[in-house]
Design a protein around this nucleic acid. Structure first.
Lengths: 200, 200
DNA sequence: CCTATCACTTAACCTCGGTTAATTTCTTCT
DNA sequence: AGAAGAAATTAACCGAGGTTAAGTGATAGG
C-alpha cells in the first residue's frame, strides 16, 4: 500500500473520532510527513514495557492488548482494542518516558505511525485538530475512569459477566488466560468462576 | 471576594497548568460568565456519587478526596488533591452522565465553578485555550495511567511506602482510614502493615 | 477534670484468590 | 490421523487481606 492510501486510512479514522463533524475542518495539508507501516504477527509486540516510544500509533486492522508485568512477574491486561483505533501510550508519547506497559498483538495486525513530536508540532497550529485531539483525550480518559470504577466497585465474577456482555465477540475469540488477565485474576480463578456460574 | 478576584484566581491557575507559556495566549475576554463560589466544610461533599454534575470546578484552597462506594458498601479513595487545582469528574462534565464518584473535603475548602457547556462553548474558539485544555487532559490521563500501573504492579505495603514518599505532608495530615482507602485496603490491614514495617 | 466520641490497634477467624501440580481437552503441525 | 504443544480444568494447600469485636489512646466539649 502506498503513502497516499495509508494517510487516507489514518485520516478517515481520525475524522470518525467525533460524531459532530469536528474533524472535517482539519487541514491535513499541514502534514507532509511520511507515515510508517508496521505489521505485528500474532503474539508479537509493537513495543515492550520499558521501551521509549514517542510515536502516535494507529491500529488499522487487528486486535491487541496493553499488558503490564508486575514486580512478581504477573501479567495484567489493561485494555483490549480492536482496529481501527488509535493505540499507544499517551504518557510515553507525551512525556518521552519509557512505557509502563507493552502492546501485544492477539491477531496479526497492521499498525501505522507518525513520530508524535513532529506530528503534533505541525498539527497544533490547526484549531480543528486541537479540538479533535481534546475529544480523543476526553474519550480515553473517560474509558479509564469507567474501567477504574468497575474494578473498584465490582467483584471478579461481576466483572466477568460485564466483560461477556460488553465484548460478546471477544469472549470466544481470545484465549481465556487473557480474559483472566483483563479481569485482574489468574486463569485458574477464572476457571473456578466459570464453573460456579454454570452450576448455578 | 468579588467576581473579578475570583476570575483572576481561576485564570492565574489555568495559566500555571503549563510550564511552556501556553496559557498566556488565552483570550479571557471571551468569557463574560458569572463564576460561582462554593465553600465546603471538612467532611462535606462538593457532590456525591450518582449526582449529575456538569460544572468545571476549581479547588482554590483546601484538600479533597475523590471517593467511590462499591456494591458492598466499601469506600475507595481514587485521588487526593490539594488546591489550587482543577477538580471534578471529566466524565460527568463532558458526557452529562451521573458521577461515578463523589468529592469530599478533608479540610474546609473553597471551590469555584463555571457551567462546563457554556464555558467550553465560549472558550473553544480560542486556539490557545484548546491547547491548554489538551495539556490538562494529557496530565490527568497520565496521572491515571501511573496510578493504575502502581496499583497493578505493587503490593499494598509497597504502595504505602510510595504514598509516604510521594505525599510526606499528607501522611500525618489526614486520618489513616483515608490513606487505607487510597491504597485500596481497610484501616485494619494498614495498621497491620505499619506494624510489620516498624518491627523490621 | 470528666466523659463522649472518634481514631487506631490488636486478636481470632474466614474467604477469596494465588500457587503448584496433575489431568484432560483443544490446537496445530507434519 | 497421530504426535507435540498449548490451554483449560480440577484439586490441595497457602496467604494476604477482610470482618468482627474488644481494647486503647487521643481529642474535644461540657
Amino acid at each position: 500500500m502506498d503513502q497516499a492510501q495509508l494517510k487516507s486510512r489514518f485520516q478517515k479514522y481520525f475524522l470518525d473520532l467525533n460524531t459532530r463533524e469536528l474533524g472535517n475542518g482539519i487541514d491535513w495539508s499541514l502534514l507532509n510527513l511520511p507515515i510508517e507501516a508496521h505489521s505485528v504477527e500474532k503474539g508479537g509486540y509493537l513495543f515492550q514495557q520499558g521501551d521509549v516510544v514517542n510515536r502516535l500509533y494507529f491500529l488499522s486492522v487487528g486486535l491487541v492488548r496493553y499488558v503490564s508485568v508486575s514486580d512478581t512477574g504477573k501479567e495484567f491486561t489493561q485494555t483490549l482494542v480492536k482496529g481501527p483505533r488509535i493505540i499507544g501510550s499517551t504518557r510515553a508519547m507525551v512525556t518521552e518516558a519509557s512505557a509502563l506497559f507493552g502492546i501485544q498483538a492477539l491477531e496479526n495486525s497492521v499498525v501505522l505511525s507518525y513520530p508524535w513530536k513532529v506530528f503534533y508540532s505541525k498539527m497544533r497550529e490547526d484549531r480543528a485538530f486541537l479540538e479533535c485531539y481534546s475529544h480523543f483525550l476526553e474519550r480515553i480518559f473517560i474509558a479509564k475512569e469507567e474501567r477504574e470504577s468497575a474494578f473498584v466497585k465490582h467483584s471478579a465474577e461481576r466483572r466477568y459477566l460485564d466483560f461477556c456482555a460488553d465484548f460478546p465477540e471477544l469472549k470466544s475469540a481470545i484465549p481465556q488466560q487473557y480474559i483472566a488477565s483483563y479481569l485482574g485474576i489468574t486463569p485458574v480463578a477464572l476457571s473456578r468462576i466459570r464453573k460456579r456460574l454454570q452450576t448455578s
